[in-house]
Design a protein around this nucleic acid. Structure first.
Lengths: 222, 222
DNA sequence: TCCTCTCTCGGTCGGTCGACCGAACTTGCG
DNA sequence: CGCAAGTTCGGTCGACCGACCGAGAGAGGA
């Protein structure tokens, strides 16, 4: 395997990602990918065998990057609410980078394509296992999470993120539906628990404003 | 417009729905739809003009059915927690009927197709507006929803449902990720608030069991 | 040197796609 | 009856799809 200036295989993967962001999974074409990568069409099949294997290779690569960053983040020795806020910041980054779009396209493709479904299920399972462990740690450190088991709480937050991502990709505007601020508020909930503070006081807690007047940006972190 | 035994237009719509459930939006083909409907291919374009207009007609029909049932349900004079549980029951029905799949395919298609995106955004906005009103009523009747505005709480629950649906469609198995029981627990939270009961006592509250041993079915209602 | 393995290349296969056409059929009205 | 509008029909257009082919370039070892 010779490493050319920019490896052909890498260029194909990146072009696939680019076309996926532009046209979605439904509109993905091997010819457009080849054109964008600047390589002959036949190179796609030489390096990956098939269109399906190509897209799965892309998915796996995104997967690995996600897991690596994720475990690095949660290994930090910080208050839990700060780590949660960092997760919210990551969401903003990932929306901009196209990461979220790729994941959601994978997810949707998995409904019809069992092979893709298996890959995505593995990815999301790993993510859930990590979040559930964090939730268990939280319960150990500062008590019960209401009526929820740690696993249920982790599932709920994770799925709220998944759903929020899908809606943000659809272009829901800021004032209409307070998607971002709703997710950020969970961090506030965690912080109140963690610091044993009186919820009615709130540290630098933002005012609760109705969504038609509220800015739907980050409400806690800058 | 003559009404034949089964109207051609209706048969095409139903066939479109059927093929969408089988192949997903990415794999939807007008020829397969025509074959399933038992009509010539040209009928699709005569009645709907284009593939895009056909799929949007289907989406709109599902939309109308959803809104009708939704408003009927929330108009009931029942405790809020009972109405929430009914919403959870609807989720089970809609998963089985293919409703959820159609909605989620619409959602995903909207990421790439602006016209579809507009339709889906309108649908989901109506849904959110209704839920937000319910949340405002809840806050009026039994006080603050933690750090959340009613609109944020509604958004959070709605998005948790959207995300949960996507994952359930992907085939997440019951014991691995307690998706259903996590959603059901929210009803418990509402009930405790609504009845002013001590959370630690709980009415017929199910035991909190770790997810590897818990059945992930309905945890409150049968 | 020559042989082999890896990789690149242009070209083309059979098939499917959405869209469109003109002719024929049905229905209702005068 | 004759006419017109609404509907159904088989057939076909050009474009695009994923997959595959054999030739050949280039590097590295024997």
């Amino acid at each position: 395997m010779v490493d050319v200036a920019t490896d052909t295989r890498t260029r194909i993967i990146e072009a696939t990602r680019s076309r996926l962001l532009a046209d979605g999974y439904a509109g993905l074409s091997t010819r457009k990918v080849a054109e964008e990568a600047g390589v002959p069409l036949s190179q796609l099949h030489y390096h990956f065998g098939s269109k399906g294997a190509l897209i799965i290779a892309l998915f796996t690569e995104e997967n690995d990057r996600l897991l690596e960053r994720q475990s690095r983040m949660y290994a930090q020795d910080k208050p839990l609410w700060q780590r949660y806020e960092q997760a919210c910041d990551f969401l903003e980054d990932d929306l901009e980078s196209g990461y979220v779009r790729v994941l959601q396209e994978m997810l949707a493709a998995g409904w019809s394509n069992p092979e893709i479904g298996d890959v995505v299920r593995d990815l999301l399972t790993d993510w859930y296992v990590l979040l559930a462990e964090v939730a268990r740690e939280a319960e150990r450190r500062f008590g019960s999470l209401g009526p929820f088991t740690p696993e249920e709480f982790a599932t709920l937050v994770a799925n709220a993120f998944i759903g929020s991502e899908a809606l943000l990709l659809l272009g829901f505007e800021r004032p209409v539906m307070p998607i971002r601020s709703a997710l950020r508020r969970i961090g506030l909930l965690i912080r109140e628990r963690e610091e044993g503070a009186d919820p009615s006081v709130g540290h630098q807690a933002p005012p609760r404003t109705p969504p038609n007047r509220a800015a739907d940006g980050p409400v806690v972190a800058g």
